[in-house]
Design a protein around this nucleic acid. Sequence first.
DNA 1: CTGTTAGCGCGTTCAA
DNA 2: TTGAACGCGCTAACAG
Lengths: 340, 340
Amino acid sequence: MTDQRLGIKTRRTTLADVAQLTGVSVGTVSKALNDRDGISQDTRDAVLAAAEKLSFRPNSLARGLLSGRTNTVGLLTNDLEGRFSLPMLMGAEDAFGAQQLSVFLCDARGDAIREQHYVGSLLDRQVDGILVVADRANPRPPLTGRIPVPVVYAYGPSSDPDDVSVITDDVEGGRHGAMHLMDIGRRRLVYIGGDPTYLASSQRADGALEALRSRGLSPVVEPAFGSWTEAWGRQATLMMLDRAPDLDGIMCGSDQIARGALDVLREQGRSVPGDIAVIGYDNWRPLAEQSRPQLSTVDMNFEELGRTAARLLFRRLAGEHVEGLHVVTPSLVTRSSTVS
Amino acid sequence: MTDQRLGIKTRRTTLADVAQLTGVSVGTVSKALNDRDGISQDTRDAVLAAAEKLSFRPNSLARGLLSGRTNTVGLLTNDLEGRFSLPMLMGAEDAFGAQQLSVFLCDARGDAIREQHYVGSLLDRQVDGILVVADRANPRPPLTGRIPVPVVYAYGPSSDPDDVSVITDDVEGGRHGAMHLMDIGRRRLVYIGGDPTYLASSQRADGALEALRSRGLSPVVEPAFGSWTEAWGRQATLMMLDRAPDLDGIMCGSDQIARGALDVLREQGRSVPGDIAVIGYDNWRPLAEQSRPQLSTVDMNFEELGRTAARLLFRRLAGEHVEGLHVVTPSLVTRSSTVS
DNA sequence: CTGTTAGCGCGTTCAA
DNA sequence: TTGAACGCGCTAACAG
């Protein structure tokens, strides 16, 4: 495609072209190509040959106009900076892919007006359904207005419990991490959380504390919350070391925080995991795999989350009624910051 | 939208509905809504009121079928892990947004078969154009087959020079970084590059060396290439320090490499930027802003790249002929790893 | 000024 | 087994 002759508007080949070449009617061609019966083998072959020769491809606009189904969904995200929507898109594509579904991606950038605008635009384009991906686990207000297609919320659930949402279980994730540390024999644990305005922050901590309690333990220093940054991880780790010099395990609300912790520990001459084991949250590869030592962490399984959301959307598209809330369980990824 | 009554198929409101409510014909409604003339003010008002009341929105499938224009483009990427396509999408959305354009996002995952499949699917959906985003700056083979719409390649150019491509100037970026280090008085410089199979690797190094030469300098140690990882950055930095203990500046092929360098320098007791200044490449915020000290680096301006690609696509859509190769110049972001 | 008609490309009736 | 006709929702071309 080296030439740029655009004005020429090389008309796409249509059913009529195939019909003409084959010498039959468009209706017959349609039947032949769609494997409907009531067609002789001979004409079917002739049609297929002609279609092949003209490299005919059906116009899905026309098809959608007629059938009311476009095999198209909208993915409305608020997190294009981030690491949530993309694995989710991959998962959704996996689930959709087999069904020949395409995805409109719109980034609302956290702006409700923009979001509303995109919803309108998606509906104008007759999408069959909408996937809404949040940038945080906090519940969010549902899309407003009359939405004549099914909607599935992912990561951040709709605040309306009747809406269909897929979320991660942050409590379970926190529990997982704590259990792991206790399983490898750690008893003097602390928790460094992220931004306290994030629901994920408190829930992960809650899960961790609950796990400790279940084994008769409690953290040796009160959990601390700050921000999702390495700087906070460093600062909080220093503080924890100061208040509990004999601690033997640090649970972190994110991999960035854990990375800060690891750096401080190394600089303080504490061996990891020998003296102190560290666990993160996110399994954000560039960080978790590049830290020293490599970071054990909790993976929210975003692709699975995306696949689940896509499957739920399918079921709704098929007219099935589905429950409001669906949970994807995180899993533990062990690397050398907890086990050697 | 709390209910899930799907079977009911609440039919979307159409021109005919508005026409009926207003008591005029569909043609009249169409004219009124599209601001065509030949309509009395009274009927126009009545139509607008009715449309508003029924919250009518035109079906863009029907419109596209008729006009041949769908106001839709495909974004074919090979880098959804990464940090290239997303800022690019933002830029493209910015440029498109004003024109009410929507984007189909497809992730080919580096697989030519999958890519071909997606191209077909995009064309079936009658996209007006296609944006191809690579995961590396190396030239790539053009899309194959008859593509009846304009294509613009971004980041990684098409190997066919007549195709329209937007690229970053890695040579200039490398030069920028080197110039900056020399401007702050550094003379004993080394270069640590990334994966040598990436064109970006050699080009950034070339630019840096060229800048040195232009001031009568050459690196105090031969440039070294490895991978785009912190581990390589650490390893290479140790090696450089060993071979040239008195070096006073390190240029890195990526922020990850630079991050590794910073960590080693701190551990070796070298002050940054006091003893040694460090500059990265990418301006990957989570890394560059969280390192100690914060990292000066080269920003490829991906959003600008996306905007440029989108604008070029527009011009092609408008039938304009555009040159094959377009270059976006990177810019320097200074933080405290080079200036205090 | 407004209504009617034709057709965009396709799938699905019905007759033949 | 095939063809002709209709309609999906819309805009453009005419007629009135």
